[in-house]
Design a protein around this nucleic acid. Sequence first.
RNA 1: CGGAGUGUAGCGCAGUCUGGUAGCGCACCUGGUUUGGGACCAGGGGGUCGAAGGUUCGAGUCCUUUCACUCCGACCA
Length: 574
Amino acid sequence: MRFSESFIYTSKEAPSDAVLPSHIYLVRGGFIQSVGAGLYNFLPLGKKVLDKVRAVAKEELDKAGCQEVELAFVTPSEFWKESGRFEKYGKELLRFKDRKDSEYVLGPTHEEMMVNMARAFIKSYKQLPVNLYQIKTKFRDEIRPRFGLMRGREFLMKDGYSFHKDEESMIKDGFEKMEKTYSRIFERLGLDFRIVEADSGAIGGSGSKEFMVLADSGEDTIVVCEDCDYGANIEAAVRENPKAPHEIDAEYERPEMQFGKFYTPDVKTIDELAEFFHIEPYYTLKTVAKKALYDEGVEKIVLFGIRGSDELQEVKACNAVNANDLVDVSDEELEKAGLVPGFMGPKDLPEDVIFIADKTLEGEISIIAGANEKDYHYVGLNLVVLKLEHKDLAAVKEGDSCIKCGGKLKYTKGIEVGHIFQLGTRYSAPMKAEFLDENGKSKPFVMGTYGIGISRLLAAIIEQHHDERGPIWTKESAPFDLEIIISNIKKEEELKTGESLYKELSKDFDVLLDDRKERFGFKISDYELLGIPYAIIVGKKIKDGLVEIVDRKTLQKQEVNVKEAVEKIKRLLV
RNA sequence: CGGAGUGUAGCGCAGUCUGGUAGCGCACCUGGUUUGGGACCAGGGGGUCGAAGGUUCGAGUCCUUUCACUCCGACCA
């Protein structure tokens, strides 16, 4: 491709709202163009990168025996009603009606459509297993799209679905196979990633794993162990029950408490409470109120009890009560339910209020908690006699102990680029997607589902590979293999050499020839902004028969004889 | 959803308080010089000032309505 004839337009200025390197460079380099909230056009450069990433995914998936299909983007709402997700999915699901007043949704993911496809053709266990996927635009009406391609509303996703006769096959032929395949895809793209345990949510199923590209700008917090390979999304991370301060530090004694109700005027927060009684927050119980939302507009106020030293993990809490979502409750609503903000606790609760306690509180016989009465707390409260329901609710903290090896846990940030999921019969059962097994019995498919954020990968690659001058594309993601820069096209010899190198190298590689009537500085800056792995500079030194080879990663230049340049580049690019 | 802010040339912005000829930088066009780290000189083109309504002799500027976009937060008993 000749730069002078290409639709490539770089800019010195970044969009005013861009903060992430990936967002800034994708726009400045002329890869994408913003057209609305979370909506982007892919310009020729961006499209090339997108296609390359997509090709890597496709190659590995096909090699693993998956088959590509392509499903309708506009999906009839009836399928969504069959699975029960039409209401449940919430506002992210874009619904609309056609001229005949029929309801449709823009596909945010395609479980329903894929199940519908499978049930039409698969009738026997002999046809199983099968793994189908597509790489296609998705639309999710995100609350707050941001960060360029990182969190758009329209995005390119690879979504795969496997169908099996039983759990065993789903894990072996689906889940585990995809875990390996995904790892190969991300390795080929040159990414440093980690596979972590993830929240399997209210959907159920026995497991799900996320592929996290490690980057400080990642939106997900992941918990990793310093000593072993344990890693989990904070939403799903588990730990050993933390030890009490008196168990860690011999100097510190467990506070002795006589059971009783204490007058604690205006002591509402855990900090104030710990201060008031001169104890560690560990010995107090923090009660967090949430409103749990269920189908058909049902709402329930739920209280979650955790240690004062912990924080509530909302996803865990949501799963604990099997709700669609948890939202905050206003003080007015709490008062209406007979609760006193600032003084809530597990004892003497009003009727109809559910209380769930964190698992670290199981067996606790002496703790300080709100008394459900203004300006009062219970001291020395025995939780055992209250017969509370216990669930894992607390967020794992840095410094907590690993459940696998006892090592120290710490936080790191990651970009979720892949998610694999053991679905079971969550969709096949309600949608009556069934086959006949060896005994002629009708059974729903046991399914797995697997996603890769293809467009997000572009952002992830840049987040992990860039410098202050622009992106540094990895070999398999670069828009071109090589750029040839003719320093000054008015110099006959430079032009001629550049053209002949271009002709020669184009036979084997995708080459961009910068033949624009610009100055050298302008061109080299553009080269760096495009992030192409290597460049050949044809400039002044041509008089001595020399050109330079630039490595985008190190920015080092190496002089080579013109005659050797082709061979040298070939060795670098193979 | 809650809070804050911004809409003026392709992009980034000033002008709005205090109404009176629509501006700057980049980009673009023409000519010339320059040519190894985003050149310079001269000339030039490009605007429903987000939209609708109102006040006024006169509105980018004041008032009302509306749309769009962006940022922050949703981590508390």
